[in-house]
Amino acid sequence: MKVKNITNGPKGVNSVDGPVEIGPGQEVNVEMSEAEVASSKRMKWFEFSGSAASTGDEPKLDRDDLKKQAEELGIEYAPNITTPKLKELIDAQLAE
Rank of each mutant, 00 (worst) to 15 (best):
D91Y: 02
I75S: 13
V28L: 05
N29R: 11
D57S: 14
L66T: 11
E76M: 10
T55H: 13
V20P: 03
E34D: 02
I6G: 01
K41C: 12
L61N: 13
M32E: 14
I75R: 10
N80R: 02
G25P: 03
T83K: 04
R63Y: 10
S49F: 14
R42Q: 14
T83N: 09
L94S: 03
K4P: 00
S49P: 14
F48N: 13
M1G: 15
D65H: 13
V28A: 05
E31F: 14
L61D: 10
V3G: 00
G23E: 09
E96M: 11
A95S: 09
G50Y: 14
V37W: 01
K85A: 08
E21M: 02
V28Q: 12
L86T: 01
L61R: 15
T55R: 15
E34W: 13
T7G: 06
L66A: 12
D91T: 00
I90W: 10
I22K: 10
F46I: 09
K11D: 01
R63F: 13
S33N: 08
R63A: 11
D91M: 11
D65Y: 12
D62P: 05
I6L: 05
D65L: 12
Y77A: 07
E58L: 13
Q93A: 04
D91C: 04
L86V: 11
E76N: 07
T83D: 04
E47W: 12
D62A: 11
I81H: 05
E72C: 11
T82Q: 02
E47N: 09
S40G: 08
V37R: 06
D91G: 01
L89G: 01
K68A: 15
V16Y: 01
K60M: 08
V16W: 01
S54N: 15
R63M: 13
P19W: 05
E76R: 06
M43W: 08
V30E: 00
G25N: 03
A52P: 04
S39T: 12
N80I: 07
K4T: 05
Q69D: 15
V3L: 09
N14V: 01
I6A: 03
K85P: 00
E34S: 07
A92K: 07
K60N: 14
E47Q: 15
L61I: 14
P79M: 08
S49G: 12
G18F: 04
S40C: 12
Q26D: 01
N8D: 05
V20Q: 09
G25R: 04
L89M: 02
S15W: 03
A70E: 10
G74Y: 07
Y77D: 05
E31Y: 02
G74W: 09
M1A: 10
E36A: 12
E96A: 04
P19E: 04
S51D: 14
Q93E: 04
K67W: 12
E36W: 08
L94N: 00
E21V: 00
N8S: 08
K68H: 14
N29L: 14
F46W: 12
N5E: 00
K44A: 15
N5L: 00
P59Q: 11
V16T: 06
P79T: 09
E88Q: 07
A52W: 04
Q93N: 00
T83G: 03
V30D: 01
K67N: 05
K2T: 10
I81W: 07
Q69R: 12
N29W: 13
T82A: 09
I22N: 02
N29K: 05
